[in-house]
């Protein structure tokens, strides 16, 4: 089963994303974040998801090019997947 989350992985949304994941991620194989935005709170959320559901695959939509920090963060997240 795949779960799609259409909220950006940004601080104002992380609590809502967390609620959704807790509701839907159990038993899922893959989570797809369809928005490319990502900040430190988003990374932290991903780390917590991995700790809670170690076998879950996580995919984040590719970011806008040029946003250096986004790339940094994204690379960091993906390298650990």
């Amino acid at each position: 089963m795949r779960v799609e989350i259409d909220l950006p992985l940004l601080l104002p949304y992380v609590e809502e994303i967390r609620q959704r994941l807790l509701d839907q991620a159990a038993g899922a194989e893959k989570i797809i974040f369809t928005k490319s935005d990502l900040d430190a709170a988003g990374i932290q959320l991903i780390v917590a998801v991995r700790k809670e559901f170690p076998s879950l695959k996580i995919e984040i939509a590719p970011g806008q090019s040029g946003k250096i920090c986004h790339l940094l963060l994204l690379k960091e997240v993906n390298s650990d997947v």
């Binding site: 967390r18 959320l45 917590a48 998801v49």
Partner: peptide
């Protein structure tokens, strides 16, 4: 970072 269920994001 705590696990998701215990995380205050």
């Amino acid at each position: 970072v705590p696990v998701l269920s215990r995380l205050n994001p």
